[in-house]
């Protein structure tokens, strides 16, 4: 994943293999955008223009599709992406309190990234682990049966682990 926060450094050649496979296949715009996000961690402006140019799809349409779906991001994300489930079961079991705890612990709101670039927080509709609610996913790991205290502890653990690695 690209860790830069500056659009000028976008290496468009990384998109080539994706475009070579999908640019001429009708109906592939979402797939291309997904793969672009896998490469850059988000969808940089330059990449969107480049995709439009190569596929022949109008830039307005590329952006229209990208902004329609919640999966796509237009800003770089932190090293760890926290996806906090705000589904029904999690809501009933206190997801609001978990959000407040994380938000307070990291000093960021939904969609924001911490100043040190370590964490990004994103509310999501449902992670499908309802019986463990409230739930959050950090990168590929799911954490269930959260309490505000447990959520804070998990974040501290990750932070400490990262600092130990440095």
């Amino acid at each position: 994943m690209c860790s830069c926060s500056c659009d000028n450094n976008i290496d468009l050649s990384q998109l080539e293999p994706v475009l070579a496979t999908y640019a001429d296949v009708p109906g592939s715009l979402i797939t291309i955008l997904q793969k672009a996000q896998d490469i850059y961690g988000y969808l940089p402006n330059e990449a969107l223009w480049h995709i439009a140019e190569r596929t022949g799809i109008k830039p307005a349409k590329v952006l229209g599709v990208a902004t329609f779906y919640t999966q796509f991001r237009f800003k770089p994300v932190g090293k760890h992406l926290i996806m906090l489930c705000r589904g029904t079961a999690c809501h009933v079991n206190g997801a609001d309190g978990i959000f407040e705890a994380i938000s307070d612990e990291l000093g960021i709101g939904d969609g924001d990234t911490t100043d040190d670039g370590l964490f990004s927080l994103k509310n999501v509709a449902c992670l499908g682990c309802c019986s463990l609610s409230p739930v959050m996913m950090i990168d590929d790991d799911t954490y269930g049966q959260l309490t505000p205290k447990k959520a804070r502890e998990i974040l501290s653990e990750i932070r400490e682990k990262d600092q130990a690695e440095v």
């Binding site: 109906g27 979402i30 329609f68 779906y69």
Partner: peptide
Amino acid sequence: AGAFVCGEETALIESLEG
């Protein structure tokens, strides 16, 4: 790519078509 409305069959088809 994350849109609840895509559970509706014609919206799903639109999404499949990119």
